[in-house]
Design a protein around this nucleic acid. Structure first.
Lengths: 242, 242
DNA sequence: AAAAGACTTTGATACAAATCAAATTTCTTT
DNA sequence: AAAGAAATTTGATTTGTATCAAAGTCTTTT
């Protein structure tokens, strides 16, 4: 362990982390709250473009994102990439590694990031002790399953305009939960990565953004997006109902 | 509780269930194995075409499939259905319900089925007591996340022939694990349901089967499939490598 | 500040799969 | 066993998105 890591350890404390409500359970009793800090071993910085873990890496820990933005992706043997998700502060990555004790996807930082390293052995032992933490871990995994169900619906049933609309609404909603604007956002990922996530080619992503812009639904300048008409986006996602 | 349910309770015993290795952890000590039986409250029969649970139903239990075959699906407000998976004996359904304490998908029996009802409260309390069970529950959820990642790859990146090839190989592999043939299977789902799962229309599913049949890769008669050339299917899934 | 490189947008064309349509086969009901 | 309904297959045509191509914009390097 380097001196830098040791120094960081002093700061590691879930008990007064401002993200706690996002990533850990509420309802811990005041007496037990300090025990929660055992869950995090240390923090780790990941530079933009670097991997937090790769397909095939041995699984040891889950990672709670403190700052920064990640993508996760799977790749075929012949080199095709499918982005499986974009993760932001307060979200957990690494759940894919539990089943085979090794990771089956890549997690790459899309901007400089810092994560809390939670050795899975700690997560499991504390979960046995604290039912509220156990329930939280189960909910996090279940949430991921439900999210992926929704992505399957996007990929299997929706046309490209619906996919982009749903994507923008989802991003801005999650950012809003974190205190950011309801209407403005900065895309941390490239058009290519958006396309990979949504099963579209880069040109189609670009054309769809342009179309929404022409229709006055959004303003878009590079990676900056202003959602001018969220209702229109909702209508596009869900044509019959709205 | 009806008399029928009571009678069934007498038979419910994970400790000598022939599916135990599929659905529950190995490595339980002989002393503890009986405790495992507490996890199942009772069994429930589900007729072909009936729902085990529906979107919106309150979540109380996970279900281990004893016999029969299920599909799970999500639906949009405007009525589009996306099949999210097909489940067979030894597999667990209901994980989607944990996060919001209500189900977000439907589970429908594709043939007469019987499931073990595992109240989630029991699963959680026994998990706290038995680390090997806790680990198993985590693995089951992680496996589902990894499976959905693979489906995202199918839907986002693969063409229809690749999807069908991967689908057939996956089904026959899971059946083989359960002691069935490596080369012959009976599809329990309609062409429509296959198409919904794979993001294809029924006509494309049919054409793709016909093409594989013409190429001598499979024989197909209605729902019966004989895989004559598994290597060819693997080659189709993964063109560069094989 | 110029040059090089990466990323994005826009246009023209091609193609895989969807849609529309009809025939065939299988299953269900009487 | 016949009639009707449902599911599946096959054919013809359309269409949404991919592909190919080129121009434009932004970022990084020298």
């Amino acid at each position: 362990m380097t001196d830098a890591t040791v120094a960081q350890n002093l700061k590691v404390a879930c008990s007064n982390c401002n993200l706690r409500e996002l990533c850990l359970p509420v309802g811990f009793s005041p007496d037990d709250i300090d025990r929660l800090d055992e869950i995090v071993k240390n923090r780790r910085r990941v530079k933009q473009g670097d991997s937090l873990f790769n397909d095939g890496d041995p699984f040891t820990s889950l990672y709670a994102i403190r700052t920064g933005f990640f993508k996760t992706s799977v790749t075929t043997d012949d080199g095709r990439e499918q982005v499986t998700g974009f993760q932001m502060a307060g979200e957990i990555v690494g759940l894919d590694g539990i089943v085979n004790e090794q990771h089956s996807c890549h997690a790459v930082a899309l901007e400089d990031a810092e994560v809390c390293v939670m050795p899975f052995a700690n997560v499991e032992s504390l979960s046995r002790e604290f039912p509220v933490l156990q329930r939280n871990v189960h909910k996090i995994m279940s949430r991921e399953i439900v999210r992926e169900n929704e992505v399957m619906m996007l990929l299997g049933n929706m046309r490209s305009e619906e996919r982009i609309a749903a994507f923008l609404l989802n991003l801005v909603q999650r950012l809003h939960t974190r205190g950011f604007s309801k209407t403005e956002l900065v895309l941390r990922m490239s058009r290519e990565e958006i396309g990979s996530y949504l099963g579209m080619k880069i040109e189609t992503v670009s054309r769809t953004f342009s179309k929404f812009s022409d229709l006055g639904i959004i303003e878009i300048k590079q990676r900056f997006v202003h959602i001018k008409d969220a209702d229109a986006l909702k209508k596009i996602c869900n044509p019959q109902v709205c």
